[in-house]
Nucleic acid binder design. Structure first.
Lengths: 345, 345
DNA sequence: TTGAAAGCGCTAACAG
DNA sequence: CTGTTAGCGCTTTCAA
């Protein structure tokens, strides 16, 4: 069942050092010796014990990824991309769900995920005011999203402001004048850098550029950002009686909820109301109508984050280099919900 | 940065054995000694090295989960549930994507996922004909789904035949007589136990019970089971000119594609065509119309699979006990696409 | 180019 | 109740 390097060495008539060299593709092994060792490995079914290797080398070959919940499509797709990026580098990925509350998130950050060389962390509840928690972190860490700023860690994020602005400009370009936004944060403390704050900022910038007035009745606060919340917010918007001819939902789940509530209320999309979301999750391609969105560059985010984490891990310590910030390229995906041509299905 | 048990022991004025006892909640430690050790641990910021523990104990405290792709909602939700179940037992989960092809799946099975005590494996391409691959597996393994039968491993799966039959009976109960099925396997080799084969069997059983004739034109082969495939299959069905008043899609992604294709073709759901899927993924609640489905008991599957794997791991060897098969309880969720009351949104 | 041997940090006998 | 000690399987000097 469990074969050790010793046994392979004995079988091949060499020392374990030589076996180790072969296993790790070190040079300076005579071809015939290598062949003999490889045969012994095959015959015995030897598989290196990664715990021992990890103990010896101080590396586990595994990175952690902490997200709020995998069942949210955005995070599932992100995890998919992260796993693929890690696999390309021969790394495994342990996924932790930091869950619904702040305490759980704090615990995940404090403990890291077990058995990993470093972690990618996408906080939902922790903010810049919790920056001090980062001081106690002893492992390489890359943050996803810009919830926590000012720490010593690398960040990989998206163009929240610019993407939102482009989304609203897209609506303006369709001639829409009364554009509602869904998903502003209920707690409007200043100085926050939550995705909601940034995307609302982009929304306002676009209005300003277009010379359209801001109307507080069009800014709907909702949290969290699940489809049901989109349904609720849209119903409230409809019930409020305020006129609107477009909705910018701060993520696609909200937008999908909005599509549903609009359909139930008999509003046609995009004729009566144009709808655009944010994230470009897979579901948006097949909703009815298909959903326009801001594609935030998920693959680029995953690839860059893993690359940065690997660099930090290989550098050995956490703060050798100044923190870096990478923002992935975004683009607008126009589908039926904004009158776009049905691009795919 | 890295504190060892030795240092904690020195600081607390005890031996490392005592520290070990404290860390692992072993009994027989005087409260005051325990307190002293805990204080030393806190002061030094000691964290046990899991590689060392793993090397010593032969356990890593991590299990593997191999699925085709995390971006498919069914697998994302399954992974979500598995991670939660594992976390309850203090275990981590490494997720591997066995991907699109058979070779990759074979490789994952052969190698296991690195650094794990055992694996949950949900094969998509491997079938019973590949059962011999299981002979070479040396780690505890629990299979999800019934693609591979006859090996020594535990299985956790769903009531594919019964669930499908119930779905079709639901449609029959609505008075539908011309029920199409989407997602039969293109390669109709006999003796296969693929989900598609089983669900088609349930479909036929329900027709037989209802006294409805089978019609090959109503059985549409499609693979894989992504939304686009549902769109394509539904378009072909429409183009074929065969009459139908209901669609049973073998999974929800296909069903969502079908809803889309029907909407584009101007067919009303459920008035003209009732639609039901299988899996009860989250998206179905918010599609337009909301999607009826068979809920396969995902939580139960995850919980049972993890429990079985833990048992196998603790038993030590792979074939101490005869293989077990667990099928989770299912139930029909009736939503708008079959004229059901809109239960949630 | 290969061998011998020393640990990595932890757990579990075994002693006391 | 607590200390001593021997490895777990691997990598890696240091020699040969």
């Amino acid at each position: 069942m469990k074969v050790t390097m010793q046994e392979v060495a004995r079988r091949a008539g060499v020392s374990n050092k030589t076996v180790s060299n072969v296993v790790n593709d070190h040079p300076h092994v005579r071809p015939e010796t290598r062949a003999r060792v490889q045969q012994a490995i095959a015959e015995l079914g030897y598989r290196p014990n990664l715990s021992a290797r990890g103990l010896r080398s101080g590396r586990t070959g595994v990175i952690g990824l902490a997200v709020p919940q995998l069942r949210q499509p955005y995070f599932a797709e992100l995890a998919d991309a992260v796993i693929a990026a890690a696999e390309r580098r021969g790394l495994g990925v342990i996924i932790g769900q930091a869950g619904a509350d702040r305490d759980h998130e704090t615990a995940v950050l404090a403990n890291g995920l077990r058995q990993t060389d470093g972690m990618l962390f996408s906080p939902e509840h922790l903010g810049t005011e919790d920056r001090h928690l980062l001081d106690d972190v002893t492992y390489p860490l890359v943050l996803l999203g810009e919830r926590i700023f000012g720490g010593p860690d690398d960040h990989v994020t998206m163009h929240n402001v610019e993407g939102a602005r482009a989304a609203v400009e897209h609506l303006v370009g369709l001639g829409r004048q009364r554009i509602a936004v869904l998903g502003a944060h209920p707690d409007r403390r200043s100085g926050q850098m939550r995705p909601s704050d940034l995307r609302v900022r982009g929304y306002r910038e676009a209005l300003a550029v277009a010379g359209l007035p801001e109307d507080p009745r069009l800014e709907r606060a909702v949290a969290p950002w699940l489809p049901q919340d989109g349904v609720d917010a849209t119903r409230e918007l409809l019930a409020s009686g305020v006129e609107f001819d477009a909705i910018f939902a701060l993520n696609d789940s909200l937008a999908i909820g909005a599509l549903r509530a609009l359909a139930q209320a008999g509003r046609r999309v995009p004729d009566d109301v144009a709808v655009i979301g944010f994230d470009n999750i897979g579901d948006g391609r097949f909703s009815t109508p298909s959903l326009s969105s801001v594609d935030p560059g998920r693959e680029e985010i995953a690839e860059t984050a893993v690359a940065m984490l690997v660099e930090r891990i290989e550098a050995g310590t956490r703060d050798v280099r100044p923190p870096r910030l990478h923002k992935a390229a975004f683009h607008i995906v126009a589908r039926e919900s904004t009158g776009g041509h049905d691009d795919e299905a």
